[in-house]
Write a protein that binds this DNA or RNA. Sequence first.
RNA 1: GCAGGCGUAGCUCAGUUGGUUAGAGCGCCGGUCUGUGGAACCGGAGGUCGGUGGUUCAAGUCCACCCGCCUGUACCA
Length: 503
Amino acid sequence: MADAKPGKKPQKLKARLPRGLADRGPAEIAATRMMVETIRGVYERYGFEPVETPAIEYTDALGKFLPDQDRPNEGVFSFQDDDEQWLSLRYDLTAPLARYVAENYQHLALPYRSYRFGWVFRNEKPGPGRFRQFMQFDADTVGAGTMAADAEVCMMAADAMEALGVPRGDYVVKVSNRKVLDGILEAIDLGGDANAGRRLTVLRAIDKLDRLGLDGVRDLLGPGRKDDSGDFTKGAGLDEKACDTVLGFLRVETHNVPQMLDQMEALVSGSNAGLDGVNELRGIADLINAAGYDDGRVRIDSSVVRGLEYYTGPVYEVELTFEVKDEKGRPIRFGSVGGGGRYDGLVSRFMGQPVPATGFSIGVSRLQAALTALGKLSNKPAPGPVLVTIFDRDRVADYQKMVSALRQANIRAELYLGNPKNNVGQQLKYADKRNSPCAIIQGSDEKAAGQVVIKDLILGAELAAENAGDREDYLKKQAEAQFSVNEADLVEAVRKVLARAAS
RNA sequence: GCAGGCGUAGCUCAGUUGGUUAGAGCGCCGGUCUGUGGAACCGGAGGUCGGUGGUUCAAGUCCACCCGCCUGUACCA
């Protein structure tokens, strides 16, 4: 121990949470558990089975982010093992699944259909509702190239949203196709390796349609755009005609699906990939139509781009369509709460043979933030345990026995474990903070009569709230919220209080 | 990453052109009240003014850098 000199406080370690990370309390944990169980139910109904992989993988298995000496943790949390091999925390659940499938390919029944949820980590700038650790819940079909697998994933996403309490119409699953986008890019002469950079810029511009609108996208396709803070974003530098082509694609008819697909087909007519993509969208549209999901739940939407790296065909995105206001009355934009697509190249990276795959991911953390703001998820504390107070300090064993009896009757119960010198008032204050439905008191008078006092804390609070008088009156009201029963009837009486509290 | 804003008690915030010992409300602790949650009244604790350095007789206040938070933007598997 350092000798603490008077006047100079010893240097204390500062308790602080690293930025972009969050502690979670009982209400949030309960909400997450509910969401996970709900999603699990939907995914299992579709025939998917669980699989779990670790949070850490070899960095090269995760994909494009190979740490270099200067910036080993750019985007991904990475560190070196004993043998100097780079390891990383996973930043999604798809790349680890591809590794798992490739490693166990011989033993899996193909098509392999699995689901998993877990924490993923991204080392990037945090924001509201955006953390460096967050939860995803994925389902994937590996080894099936049919569009039926893609259509099914979209319908399952819609089912999951509704099971979670998002009403039909308050969300939409949007579907597009990367091959169609490639076709558009070919149509404006951005094919070939030389134009890879500009292709990315165009795709990023398209991805911003919902936020910036058609005019904003046009600026980004052309010379560039200046934002509210005066910051300038350089554009793709397309000419007028090319801009019109891209914007024409984004503006295709959306109400009549066959007509929309015909328009798309015309726009990509010079590109084989583009025509393939349109045909894939037709396949998906037919399937969701046949299943009745074309009523607004699942929609073809040309503006969906999704990640830029590994998707090879259909891409999907789930968006919330209602508006939520924050405490200050400003609209909160949640954006996409889930997404996915076909990634035919991801497993084959490990295999030397083509393995088609398609999958979908729900951003549990972001969706939870949205549902909480919407009031769909309670953030009220769960009821606490029944508190058995300590009145006579030499009779702790008796009180403990009551606690045991309650627990054996499957009732959450606790003995007061704080300072035993605290009087009943202080103990009740604790019960109040714990949100306990009731407290048990047995003083010497009750003991002599073979009775226990049950104090209904919820009823007591109601009585006190409706009559805030002087102390005498207050104590009288409080007495009404408590009653005595025979020791033997303790469990039964507590049950009645709990039943009242639950109603 | 870039641009802008903000940082004073556990929380929400005052704090004058730089000038004695930095304040308020709420919360917390104690008392009125040997055996009952609240209210009221009285009393009390709690602050390296985000951090470091500088200018000055004097810095919460001015300057520089750093850290953190917020807004926009970029990136986003």
